[in-house]
Every structure is written in structure tokens, then in C-alpha cells.
Amino acid sequence: MSDIDCKEALKKLYEYLDGELSPTDARDIEHHLEICAACYPEVRLTTEYREALRRAAQGQPCCPEGLRHRIAHIIEKERRTPP
């Protein structure tokens, strides 16, 4: 296990939270964040940000029914038309 510093941890924080790091890099950063008080505020803010957006994402509207039908109709029409 290699030790990383705060700079390195914060630099890769998003990639870590986005699940874009290799398992080794992810473990290193996890280990650092578990024991580091200095990184905590930024991690907390970033986590709250992500939570807020996830919550908002769930509240987004669905495709209107009228549009859904129009598209089904258009596709059906296309299918009947020889290429």
C-alpha cells in the first residue's frame, strides 16, 4: 500500500467518487480519507453536492405520453416505408 498525501487525494477525489480509479488507486485514496481530518470538509461538501444532484435527478420529468405516441407512430411509418 502506497501512502498518498492530501494534495493527491483531493486531486483524485472526483475520479474516486465517480468510480473511475483503478482498484489500487481507489484503495489508496480510501485509506487516506479514512484517517485524514484535513480532507474531510472537502469530501463532505463534495458528497453533499453529489447527493443533491442525485436527488434532483430523480425528480426530473418523464417523457410526455403524447410525445411517446408520436414517436411510436413515426417509427411505425418509417418501417412501412421501404428504404
Partner: peptide, 16 residues
């Protein structure tokens, strides 16, 4: 608000 609690005060509309 160092803990970022303000995020919880924001309604979806503001976020969008």
C-alpha cells in the same frame, strides 16, 4: 456552513 448542509436547503428547481 463548512459541512455543506446548504445543499439540503436547495429545492430541485433551484438546482436545475
Amino acid at each position: 456552513d463548512p459541512e455543506g448542509d446548504f445543499y439540503r436547503s436547495l429545492v430541485d428547481e433551484r438546482i436545475f
